[in-house]
Design a protein around this nucleic acid. Structure first.
Lengths: 353, 353
DNA sequence: CGTGCATCTGACAACGTTGTCCAGGCTCTA
DNA sequence: TAGAGCCTGGACAACGTTGTCAGATGCACG
């Protein structure tokens, strides 16, 4: 129960039913300034053709009434909203903060507002949200897909809504996509472990239906195959990334008949859980994780990771979106940004018996 | 330079100039279905009074044309937008992720969309953003203040825009505020250090102009005074929280003529920097930080913190906002949520010579 | 078969803004 | 001083939707 303190008990001077119906309009301003409606519009929009004296009178009326242009009406009239939508999985996930921020910066640079919502990894909710944004007539849409079928956006794209998918490819629709090199990053991370002498390497990742998870698994397998190491079934674990399952998976592959000496983790949530498990082990186990996270360098040992550049993903996607709006772009592309290995200690541990 | 791969080079079948002017409207749907305009509106909004047969015809026309209601026009007509705005400091700051997410959840529960933007701690930008949102006629506004004068929102509030300030109080305006108990939390944290035998305790915080920083400093002083410990000037450092300054401040108070044996840090950024400095020290130094952060428990030792509940802040603010919109609320209140101490080791270290 | 009623449908205005276009007043020149 | 041309200001329609209200249709009943 929040502890509350009354600050002011003065009677309400704000009418309860006063929505914004009673807001002053340009008409009101015009009446007060004794000019025509369009003249007010001109002043508000800084259009030429108004004498300084008239402008001053209008400005005074605006200030006196507290007038603020109604952008809904403006949008209706002009056709463009100067806003873009961002549909992501979970605002609370630290990976999406910088991404969202980067998209916002680009939007701001183009004079647009950002409207966003979380899909909570639910395809239905993603669709609901994306379509709600389209109904608002956002000029463009940046989507981090939760589902794998985006045909529902076809009419919107045809109608001119610029659309870019980020982090995961769009499903069953031809559109711009900006991704990290999940395959290459995972392959490099696993190769790094192999280079440090490991041969029994575990992989714990997300559900294989998720594109990024599948790609990272593919990278793991490729690195192992390149090194001529056959992968045992017990070494890979795919599924939900809740801490319990991940913990069980880690413990299993650390204790079987041929226990792994190193683990590659498929995303930051998994990595964090595995760190906890490894901390309880008697012998040191090497670890490389996909996705960087704050303080990874402060742990003992520091955690070696394959880092995606979340901000670059967002920036690239947003810039591409605005280039679609410019008309500069025509054919959809698939853009892959490199992921890079950051060594901090945990990935350089030698294999322990 | 991003590495790019062409995916499809088929000629554009999307007209470059096709904004959304060519979107089908209810009129188009009506024409195609051979019914009146209003009937389409009824079907779209699920209003009663349409025969199943007519409804089916309309629905078919809608699907065939890919019609989507234009919410801008709807908003203009109805007066409410079913959207709220969130103005925060920095989406990339992990503290605001959960807060933003909580606000969004509540908004969603009320059928509203969330529009947000970052002020980047710039008061001008905060104002610009807040007013832009008002121009969009958001129904309400959740603001994490960057500036300390919010009188610019008075006309908006009078016009019926529900407004709640979070994390810091509003400046020079009477409005709802939801805060953490910064004073009490800091006092408890410092008292905790004192209880573990420390007397020479340092405080490193943000600029004293920031309300939260001032409150936390006040809490520090109160705890020291309660214990009858005079505070030496060299023990407190207030100012920008960039790593260099914080590092210098920490090193100074650890090396002076009466070096501190414990440090209380004023926010998570400061805490992280101080952790790095302490890791380089020969003798152990106790640490309690304001704000929790991920992995604080995995460090050696775990970091004892005074944790705010960011999600609760967001939730409380958003719920209050919607209650303002309901008309349930009248007088502005100031709500303080408790902060709680989480002990993990670093705050329980005894004083070392 | 006419009346009354309930149900369904559509014409019309309005929301607040901007684009178009024309009127009126001014200055400048012949 | 008259005419041409420019500049400022305003009337009006349109954007796509919803609320109001009245008309049309069908049916039951007297």
């Amino acid at each position: 129960m929040p502890e509350t303190t009354r600050r002011a008990d003065r009677p309400a001077d704000r009418l309860p039913g006063a929505r914004y119906g009673n807001r002053p309009t340009m008409k009101d301003v015009a009446a007060r300034a004794g000019v025509g409606l369009k003249t007010v519009s001109r002043v508000v929009n800084g259009e030429p053709g108004v004498t300084p004296d008239t402008e001053r009178r209008v400005q005074e009326a605006i200030d006196a009434l507290g007038f603020r242009r109604n952008d809904s009406a403006r949008v209706l009239r002009k056709g463009r909203t100067a806003s873009i939508g961002l549909v992501l999985e979970d605002l609370a996930d630290p990976f999406y903060g910088p991404l969202s921020r980067a998209v916002e910066e680009v939007a701001r640079a183009h004079g647009a507002l950002l409207i966003n919502g979380s899909s909570a990894e639910d395809p239905d909710r993603e669709q609901e949200l994306a379509l709600a944004l389209c109904a608002r007539r956002v000029d463009g849409l940046v989507v981090i897909p939760a589902g794998d079928d985006h045909r529902y956006l076809e009419p919107e794209i045809r109608a001119g809504v610029a659309t870019v998918f980020v982090d995961r490819p769009a499903g069953r629709i031809d559109a711009d996509v900006v991704l990290s090199d999940n395959f290459g990053g995972a392959r490099d991370g696993v190769a790094h472990l192999i280079a440090h002498g490991h041969r029994r390497i575990g992989f714990i990742g997300d559900m294989p239906g998720i594109h990024t998870a599948a790609e990272r698994l593919r990278g793991y397998r490729a690195a192992m195959e390149d090194a001529g190491i056959p992968v045992e079934d017990a070494w890979t674990s795919l599924g939900a990334t809740d801490p319990e399952r991940v913990r069980r998976a880690a413990e299993e592959m650390l204790s079987g008949s041929s226990p792994v000496t190193a683990v590659f983790t498929g995303n930051n949530r998994v990595t964090v859980t595995v760190i906890r498990v490894l901390a309880e082990q008697a012998r040191p186990v090497a670890l490389v994780g996909f996705d960087d996270f704050e303080l990874a360098d402060l742990l003992q040992p520091g955690i070696t990771v394959v880092a995606q550049d979340a901000a670059a993903l967002g920036r690239t996607a947003a810039e591409r979106l605005f280039r679609q709006l410019d008309g500069t772009l025509v054919a959809p592309e698939r853009i892959e940004l490199p992921a890079r290995l950051i060594t901090r200690g945990s990935g350089e541990l030698p294999p322990a018996a």
